[in-house]
Amino acid sequence: MRLQFVLAEIGSGLRRNLSMVVSVILVTFVSLTFVGAAGMLQLQINQMKGYWYDKVQVAIFLCSDGSTAAGCATGPATPEQQDNLGKLLESPAVAQYVNDFQFESKDDAYKHFKEQFSNSPIVDSVTPDQLPASFRINMKDPEKYQIISETFSSQAGVETVIDQRQLLERLFSVMNAASLVAVSVAGVMIVCAILLIATTIRLSAFSRRRETGIMRLVGASKVVIQLPFILEGVIAAVIGAALASATLWAVAHFFLGGYLSQQYPDTAFISAAQTLILAPALIGLGVLLAGVSSLLTLRRYLRV
Protein backbone atom coordinates (compact mmCIF):
# COMPACT_ATOMS: atom_id res chain seq x y z
CA MET A 1 0.00 0.00 0.00
CA ARG A 2 2.69 2.39 0.98
CA LEU A 3 4.74 1.51 -2.08
CA GLN A 4 1.72 2.00 -4.28
CA PHE A 5 1.10 5.32 -2.62
CA VAL A 6 4.68 6.45 -3.16
CA LEU A 7 4.50 5.42 -6.82
CA ALA A 8 1.26 7.33 -7.31
CA GLU A 9 2.85 10.39 -5.70
CA ILE A 10 5.83 10.13 -8.03
CA GLY A 11 3.55 9.88 -11.04
CA SER A 12 1.56 12.95 -10.09
CA GLY A 13 4.73 14.85 -9.25
CA LEU A 14 6.27 14.10 -12.62
CA ARG A 15 3.11 15.11 -14.43
CA ARG A 16 2.68 18.36 -12.53
CA ASN A 17 6.26 19.37 -13.04
CA LEU A 18 6.65 18.14 -16.58
CA SER A 19 8.61 21.04 -18.05
CA MET A 20 11.11 21.03 -15.21
CA VAL A 21 11.46 17.28 -15.41
CA VAL A 22 12.15 17.49 -19.13
CA SER A 23 14.83 20.10 -18.52
CA VAL A 24 16.44 17.91 -15.86
CA ILE A 25 16.42 15.03 -18.32
CA LEU A 26 18.06 17.16 -21.00
CA VAL A 27 20.71 18.64 -18.75
CA THR A 28 21.72 15.29 -17.31
CA PHE A 29 21.61 13.88 -20.83
CA VAL A 30 24.03 16.48 -22.16
CA SER A 31 26.35 16.43 -19.15
CA LEU A 32 26.52 12.65 -19.03
CA THR A 33 27.09 12.51 -22.79
CA PHE A 34 30.20 14.60 -22.27
CA VAL A 35 31.31 12.37 -19.41
CA GLY A 36 30.69 9.38 -21.62
CA ALA A 37 32.54 10.95 -24.54
CA ALA A 38 35.58 11.37 -22.33
CA GLY A 39 35.23 7.74 -21.31
CA MET A 40 34.93 6.69 -24.95
CA LEU A 41 38.08 8.58 -25.89
CA GLN A 42 39.95 6.79 -23.14
CA LEU A 43 38.59 3.45 -24.33
CA GLN A 44 39.67 4.34 -27.85
CA ILE A 45 43.17 5.26 -26.68
CA ASN A 46 43.51 1.94 -24.85
CA GLN A 47 42.19 0.11 -27.86
CA MET A 48 44.68 1.78 -30.19
CA LYS A 49 47.54 1.23 -27.78
CA GLY A 50 46.72 -2.46 -27.63
CA TYR A 51 46.38 -2.65 -31.37
CA TRP A 52 49.32 -0.54 -32.46
CA TYR A 53 51.93 -1.22 -29.83
CA ASP A 54 52.25 -4.78 -31.18
CA LYS A 55 52.66 -3.49 -34.67
CA VAL A 56 54.83 -0.42 -34.28
CA GLN A 57 58.36 -0.77 -35.44
CA VAL A 58 61.57 1.11 -35.06
CA ALA A 59 62.72 2.18 -38.48
CA ILE A 60 66.37 2.79 -39.34
CA PHE A 61 66.42 4.91 -42.47
CA LEU A 62 69.49 4.66 -44.62
CA CYS A 63 71.05 7.58 -46.39
CA SER A 64 69.61 8.27 -49.82
CA ASP A 65 70.34 10.83 -52.54
CA GLY A 66 68.75 13.81 -50.94
CA SER A 67 69.81 13.10 -47.33
CA THR A 68 71.23 16.06 -45.47
CA ALA A 69 71.91 14.40 -42.11
CA ALA A 70 75.44 14.48 -40.69
CA GLY A 71 75.88 10.73 -41.04
CA CYS A 72 75.12 10.94 -44.74
CA ALA A 73 77.99 13.21 -45.71
CA THR A 74 79.48 10.46 -47.83
CA GLY A 75 76.34 10.20 -49.98
CA PRO A 76 73.83 7.35 -50.24
CA ALA A 77 74.41 4.28 -48.12
CA THR A 78 76.59 1.72 -49.77
CA PRO A 79 75.72 -2.01 -49.88
CA GLU A 80 78.62 -2.59 -47.42
CA GLN A 81 77.22 -0.20 -44.91
CA GLN A 82 73.90 -1.92 -45.32
CA ASP A 83 75.50 -5.33 -44.67
CA ASN A 84 77.27 -3.94 -41.58
CA LEU A 85 74.00 -2.68 -40.19
CA GLY A 86 72.41 -6.06 -40.85
CA LYS A 87 75.24 -7.80 -38.98
CA LEU A 88 75.02 -5.35 -36.12
CA LEU A 89 71.32 -6.12 -35.78
CA GLU A 90 72.12 -9.81 -35.54
CA SER A 91 74.90 -9.30 -33.02
CA PRO A 92 74.01 -10.55 -29.50
CA ALA A 93 74.23 -7.06 -27.98
CA VAL A 94 71.36 -5.87 -30.12
CA ALA A 95 69.58 -9.11 -30.96
CA GLN A 96 68.40 -9.60 -27.39
CA TYR A 97 66.09 -6.61 -27.83
CA VAL A 98 64.94 -7.48 -31.31
CA ASN A 99 62.15 -9.85 -32.16
CA ASP A 100 62.80 -9.76 -35.87
CA PHE A 101 63.63 -7.28 -38.58
CA GLN A 102 63.17 -6.86 -42.29
CA PHE A 103 65.03 -4.85 -44.83
CA GLU A 104 62.88 -2.58 -46.90
CA SER A 105 64.61 -1.64 -50.12
CA LYS A 106 63.93 1.52 -52.10
CA ASP A 107 61.67 -0.45 -54.41
CA ASP A 108 59.73 -1.94 -51.49
CA ALA A 109 59.40 1.51 -50.02
CA TYR A 110 58.12 2.79 -53.34
CA LYS A 111 55.59 -0.03 -53.52
CA HIS A 112 54.29 0.71 -49.98
CA PHE A 113 54.20 4.38 -50.75
CA LYS A 114 52.10 3.80 -53.83
CA GLU A 115 49.69 1.64 -51.89
CA GLN A 116 49.37 4.11 -49.10
CA PHE A 117 48.80 7.16 -51.27
CA SER A 118 47.03 5.44 -54.14
CA ASN A 119 44.44 8.24 -54.31
CA SER A 120 46.93 11.02 -54.25
CA PRO A 121 48.55 12.68 -57.27
CA ILE A 122 51.81 12.84 -55.33
CA VAL A 123 52.48 9.20 -56.32
CA ASP A 124 53.19 10.23 -59.92
CA SER A 125 55.96 12.61 -58.95
CA VAL A 126 57.83 10.20 -56.68
CA THR A 127 60.48 7.79 -57.90
CA PRO A 128 62.04 4.87 -56.01
CA ASP A 129 65.32 6.79 -55.78
CA GLN A 130 63.81 9.52 -53.68
CA LEU A 131 62.67 7.11 -51.00
CA PRO A 132 65.09 5.83 -48.37
CA ALA A 133 65.73 2.16 -47.80
CA SER A 134 65.23 1.09 -44.22
CA PHE A 135 65.49 -1.65 -41.65
CA ARG A 136 62.17 -2.32 -39.96
CA ILE A 137 62.68 -3.71 -36.47
CA ASN A 138 60.05 -5.32 -34.29
CA MET A 139 61.16 -4.81 -30.75
CA LYS A 140 60.71 -7.34 -27.99
CA ASP A 141 60.00 -4.47 -25.65
CA PRO A 142 58.97 -1.24 -27.38
CA GLU A 143 60.20 0.73 -24.36
CA LYS A 144 63.82 -0.17 -25.23
CA TYR A 145 63.74 2.04 -28.30
CA GLN A 146 66.48 4.25 -26.85
CA ILE A 147 69.09 1.46 -27.09
CA ILE A 148 68.51 0.92 -30.80
CA SER A 149 68.51 4.61 -31.39
CA GLU A 150 71.83 5.13 -29.60
CA THR A 151 73.45 2.17 -31.29
CA PHE A 152 72.49 3.01 -34.85
CA SER A 153 72.22 6.79 -35.08
CA SER A 154 76.02 7.15 -35.21
CA GLN A 155 76.57 4.33 -37.71
CA ALA A 156 77.78 5.22 -41.16
CA GLY A 157 75.04 5.27 -43.79
CA VAL A 158 72.21 5.80 -41.27
CA GLU A 159 70.15 8.90 -41.81
CA THR A 160 67.85 8.64 -38.84
CA VAL A 161 66.25 6.19 -36.43
CA ILE A 162 62.55 6.66 -35.88
CA ASP A 163 60.28 5.14 -33.26
CA GLN A 164 56.82 4.92 -34.76
CA ARG A 165 55.44 4.82 -31.26
CA GLN A 166 56.27 8.46 -30.85
CA LEU A 167 53.97 9.28 -33.73
CA LEU A 168 51.20 7.47 -31.91
CA GLU A 169 52.02 9.18 -28.62
CA ARG A 170 51.41 12.49 -30.29
CA LEU A 171 48.00 11.29 -31.44
CA PHE A 172 47.23 9.98 -27.99
CA SER A 173 48.14 13.24 -26.34
CA VAL A 174 45.70 15.01 -28.66
CA MET A 175 43.03 12.53 -27.71
CA ASN A 176 43.84 12.91 -24.03
CA ALA A 177 43.51 16.66 -24.36
CA ALA A 178 40.16 16.16 -26.07
CA SER A 179 38.93 13.95 -23.27
CA LEU A 180 40.09 16.54 -20.73
CA VAL A 181 38.04 19.17 -22.56
CA ALA A 182 35.07 16.81 -22.55
CA VAL A 183 35.47 16.24 -18.82
CA SER A 184 35.63 19.96 -18.06
CA VAL A 185 32.54 20.67 -20.15
CA ALA A 186 30.89 17.77 -18.36
CA GLY A 187 31.92 19.30 -15.02
CA VAL A 188 30.17 22.56 -15.82
CA MET A 189 27.11 20.74 -17.07
CA ILE A 190 27.02 18.56 -13.97
CA VAL A 191 26.96 21.66 -11.78
CA CYS A 192 24.04 22.88 -13.91
CA ALA A 193 22.33 19.55 -13.51
CA ILE A 194 22.72 19.57 -9.74
CA LEU A 195 21.34 23.09 -9.43
CA LEU A 196 18.50 22.34 -11.79
CA ILE A 197 17.55 19.19 -9.93
CA ALA A 198 17.61 21.17 -6.69
CA THR A 199 15.34 23.84 -8.20
CA THR A 200 12.99 21.26 -9.62
CA ILE A 201 12.61 19.54 -6.30
CA ARG A 202 12.05 22.86 -4.59
CA LEU A 203 9.27 23.68 -7.04
CA SER A 204 7.83 20.24 -6.67
CA ALA A 205 7.91 20.47 -2.88
CA PHE A 206 6.29 23.90 -3.08
CA SER A 207 3.51 22.81 -5.38
CA ARG A 208 2.75 19.91 -3.07
CA ARG A 209 3.19 21.69 0.25
CA ARG A 210 -0.47 21.15 1.06
CA GLU A 211 -0.14 17.37 0.76
CA THR A 212 3.16 17.21 2.58
CA GLY A 213 1.80 19.44 5.34
CA ILE A 214 -1.08 17.05 5.90
CA MET A 215 1.24 14.07 5.68
CA ARG A 216 3.36 15.53 8.46
CA LEU A 217 0.32 16.21 10.62
CA VAL A 218 -1.07 12.73 10.38
CA GLY A 219 2.34 11.28 11.16
CA ALA A 220 3.63 9.99 7.84
CA SER A 221 7.23 8.91 8.12
CA LYS A 222 10.08 10.86 6.62
CA VAL A 223 10.58 8.19 3.98
CA VAL A 224 7.00 8.32 2.75
CA ILE A 225 7.09 12.11 2.57
CA GLN A 226 10.50 12.56 1.00
CA LEU A 227 10.95 9.49 -1.14
CA PRO A 228 8.62 10.64 -3.95
CA PHE A 229 10.63 13.83 -4.38
CA ILE A 230 13.98 12.06 -4.35
CA LEU A 231 12.77 9.41 -6.77
CA GLU A 232 11.38 12.07 -9.10
CA GLY A 233 14.84 13.56 -9.49
CA VAL A 234 16.43 10.13 -9.73
CA ILE A 235 14.01 8.97 -12.41
CA ALA A 236 14.63 12.09 -14.49
CA ALA A 237 18.38 11.67 -14.11
CA VAL A 238 18.23 7.99 -15.05
CA ILE A 239 16.28 8.82 -18.18
CA GLY A 240 18.92 11.41 -19.04
CA ALA A 241 21.68 8.88 -18.41
CA ALA A 242 19.93 6.30 -20.55
CA LEU A 243 19.64 8.82 -23.37
CA ALA A 244 23.33 9.65 -23.00
CA SER A 245 24.25 5.96 -23.16
CA ALA A 246 22.08 5.49 -26.24
CA THR A 247 23.73 8.49 -27.88
CA LEU A 248 27.20 7.15 -27.20
CA TRP A 249 26.19 3.78 -28.55
CA ALA A 250 24.79 5.40 -31.68
CA VAL A 251 27.99 7.41 -32.17
CA ALA A 252 30.09 4.27 -31.79
CA HIS A 253 27.82 2.26 -34.04
CA PHE A 254 27.11 4.67 -36.86
CA PHE A 255 30.04 7.10 -36.79
CA LEU A 256 32.99 5.03 -35.60
CA GLY A 257 31.73 1.66 -36.77
CA GLY A 258 30.21 2.94 -40.00
CA TYR A 259 31.79 6.09 -41.38
CA LEU A 260 35.21 6.29 -39.73
CA SER A 261 36.09 2.62 -40.04
CA GLN A 262 35.40 2.85 -43.77
CA GLN A 263 37.62 5.90 -44.05
CA TYR A 264 40.39 4.39 -41.96
CA PRO A 265 40.05 0.65 -42.41
CA ASP A 266 43.37 -0.15 -40.73
CA THR A 267 42.53 1.71 -37.50
CA ALA A 268 41.06 -0.20 -34.62
CA PHE A 269 37.96 1.62 -33.43
CA ILE A 270 36.07 0.66 -30.32
CA SER A 271 32.97 -1.36 -31.04
CA ALA A 272 29.47 -0.19 -30.17
CA ALA A 273 29.20 -2.99 -27.64
CA GLN A 274 32.21 -1.62 -25.79
CA THR A 275 30.47 1.70 -25.17
CA LEU A 276 27.74 -0.18 -23.32
CA ILE A 277 30.12 -0.78 -20.41
CA LEU A 278 29.95 2.99 -19.90
CA ALA A 279 26.17 2.88 -19.50
CA PRO A 280 26.03 1.53 -15.92
CA ALA A 281 28.64 4.07 -14.87
CA LEU A 282 26.66 6.92 -16.44
CA ILE A 283 23.39 5.77 -14.89
CA GLY A 284 25.10 5.36 -11.53
CA LEU A 285 26.50 8.86 -11.82
CA GLY A 286 23.05 10.20 -12.72
CA VAL A 287 21.46 8.52 -9.70
CA LEU A 288 24.20 9.89 -7.47
CA LEU A 289 23.77 13.44 -8.82
CA ALA A 290 20.02 13.41 -8.36
CA GLY A 291 20.10 11.65 -5.02
CA VAL A 292 22.65 13.95 -3.44
CA SER A 293 21.17 17.18 -4.72
CA SER A 294 17.64 16.20 -3.76
CA LEU A 295 18.69 15.11 -0.29
CA LEU A 296 20.39 18.45 0.26
CA THR A 297 17.39 20.35 -1.10
CA LEU A 298 14.85 18.44 0.95
CA ARG A 299 16.81 19.01 4.10
CA ARG A 300 16.22 22.72 3.56
CA TYR A 301 12.79 22.86 2.04
CA LEU A 302 10.90 19.86 3.32
CA ARG A 303 11.36 19.54 7.02
CA VAL A 304 9.58 16.66 8.60
Partner: peptide, 11 residues
Protein backbone atom coordinates in the same frame (compact mmCIF):
# COMPACT_ATOMS: atom_id res chain seq x y z
CA UNK B 1 -8.28 7.90 3.20
CA UNK B 2 -5.14 9.95 2.51
CA UNK B 3 -4.39 10.13 6.22
CA UNK B 4 -4.45 6.34 6.38
CA UNK B 5 -2.60 5.72 3.14
CA UNK B 6 0.42 7.77 4.13
CA UNK B 7 0.94 5.77 7.28
CA UNK B 8 0.65 2.54 5.38
CA UNK B 9 -2.79 1.24 6.30
CA UNK B 10 -4.03 -1.53 4.05
CA UNK B 11 -6.71 -0.88 1.51
Amino acid sequence: AFAMQVIGKSR
